[in-house]
Design a protein around this nucleic acid. Structure first.
Lengths: 307, 307
DNA sequence: CCGGAGCAATAGGTTTTTTCAATCGTTCTA
DNA sequence: TAGAACGATTGAAAAAACCTATTGCTCCGG
């Protein structure tokens, strides 16, 4: 029965019998028959049949909810047993929003020191994709904004606060400044993430609040692309401080803090709200708490010294 | 995999491969092989092997916890689908402590009016048995004391309050009284439930508190046996008011309220703390709340008029 | 110390289930 | 109207699940 629920989940993900079958490592007739069996066992139609995949019936949607739960539990069971036998080992799938990609290393590196047998897969996703992927058990944890747009039901661990910089050549218009305002930035032609990214939406709203109208000269869903363009000295972009540092500043490229207002958003780890967590996920949360509390202490120190 | 988890649960219940197999409707080698497969799949030993069944390994115990969850969820899924298809139907297994057996009808009767297709199985169990049976998914709900001895993790719905009467012949020592004290009762030879019953322990502690030493002349785990003896006119017993009423009083048998102190214990419905509940269990809880609130209102009225 | 009873594991054979390759029927599109 | 895409169907082969019968072990009673 558990296999059949896997089929159903795959079908929900792929919305296509053939691809779902491939994802499950079986042929299309096998998956087709599996779904049929599930329908027979439950005595209800789960999939709306037509010449092609249309969607699920209400019963099918409800069954999917249960499948998520049951599969999550059965995977946790399996992983827990493996952890008991041979220590923490296995695969940890983490998705992060592009602006947080560089900081994933701060999480994975100490994790790996504690648990050398764990392998990682890191995905770059939009914050919305992260939430659905968490739901569908495609990833174990996500790194995304905690405080901007509504999250689903997840457990959160704050990691750090994102402050924004103008990344530009020292020879460019604002290149010699020590700080700039959002109003000034709004007049610079920028390279920005695509609008499906939350970071883009945040920056747009900040620019608009400062009275400007965002008109990016170049869009990409990859921070690498943006940085590569800035690096030529001919383009400018807005990036989180942390990311700019990681990507490395040269003599000619400067990261200039943007003030007025100093916009801050919290980035953190999100995991499914299931109790108990898989051992791998639990260890990741522990790691995140360490980093998070470090940064909180840091932030507090800064605040105190600032006063 | 789900079948294998069923095997494991049955083995935990029966503590015997053969009987567990029979309970699952398979032969002993099949169940044996099933457990082996589960062990292979999880990569750990689950059962302590010896010449006979000894017990589970720590990993086995942990796996049992998960099995309970996973099986409960998968059953809820199946039942929910059946409820969607053909309305509320199926089997509802309820266990009650002996003193509450008579009141089960107050729950099942209105339930049946609302949902005529649901069939019931009622077990008489001790309060401790009820809790383990709930854990092991052998019953869907229990009726037991809510306030005396510690319950496990369950959701509770109060149903009524148990007040105690001396049940005795009108010609016997205290037979002509309108009320008696626990101290007086402690000097009467009684028929009581066996000591594994919580009711017996409650009554014993009340008798001891009144300075007496309980010396029951006859013990049974069946209230019917106790009542049958009292009915001869030659024996006496202590019973909850509600039960005495249901069993029927004759001219010669009287139920005399016991006061000083007026001991009251709450009896209620207990269900596993799983969210969401099966449709059948949810309907039972709804019914219990109706009865419970009725009685609460009644109790309040009594209190008010008493003041 | 021996023999029988009770219990779980194993062996061997049968049935059932699962799976896949090939094909079909339908629907949408160019 | 031909072709492509998609899911259902079919039939044969492979895998598995299951059962009966048996074995091997341990514990007890004599």
């Amino acid at each position: 029965m558990i296999d059949k629920l896997e089929y159903l989940m795959a079908l929900a993900r792929e919305r296509h019998f053939g691809r779902a079958a491939e994802a499950c490592g079986v042929t299309q007739p096998t998956l087709s028959a599996g779904i049929k069996q599930l329908e027979a066992q439950l005595g209800v139609l789960l999939v709306q049949r037509g010449s092609r995949f249309i969607g699920f019936t209400p019963e099918g949607e409800r069954t999917l909810d249960w499948a998520r739960r049951i599969l999550a539990d059965s995977r946790t069971l399996q992983e827990e047993m493996r952890a008991l036998k041979s220590g923490l080992a296995g695969q940890l799938r983490i998705a992060a929003i592009p602006t947080a990609l560089a900081m994933v290393a701060e999480l994975t590196t100490p994790y790996r020191l504690r648990h050398p047998e764990v392998r990682f897969t890191i995905f770059s996703m939009t914050s919305i994709q992260i939430l659905t992927a968490l739901e569908n058990l495609e990833i174990d944890a996500g790194i995304t904004y905690l405080d901007n747009e509504p999250l689903g039901r997840v457990n959160m661990v704050p990691l750090y606060r994102e402050r924004y910089c103008l990344l530009t050549s020292a020879e460019a218009a604002l290149g010699n400044r020590d700080s700039v305002t959002w109003a000034e930035v709004s007049r610079v032609p920028l390279c920005l993430l695509t609008p499906d990214m939350q970071n883009r939406r945040i920056i747009e709203s900040l620019l608009r609040a400062a009275g400007g109208e965002p008109r990016p000269m170049l869009e990409s869903n990859s921070m690498i692309v943006l940085f590569a363009h800035v690096r030529t000295g001919q383009w400018a972009s807005v990036m989180p401080e942390k990311l700019a540092e990681t990507l490395g500043l040269t003599e000619t490229i400067r990261a200039i803090p943007i003030t007025e207002p100093e916009a801050v958003h919290t980035i953190g780890l999100v995991v499914p709200p299931r109790e108990p967590m898989t051992p791998l996920a639990a260890a990741l949360v522990a790691e995140a708490r360490r980093i998070g509390s470090d940064l909180n202490i840091e932030a507090r120190k800064q605040t105190e010294s600032g006063v």
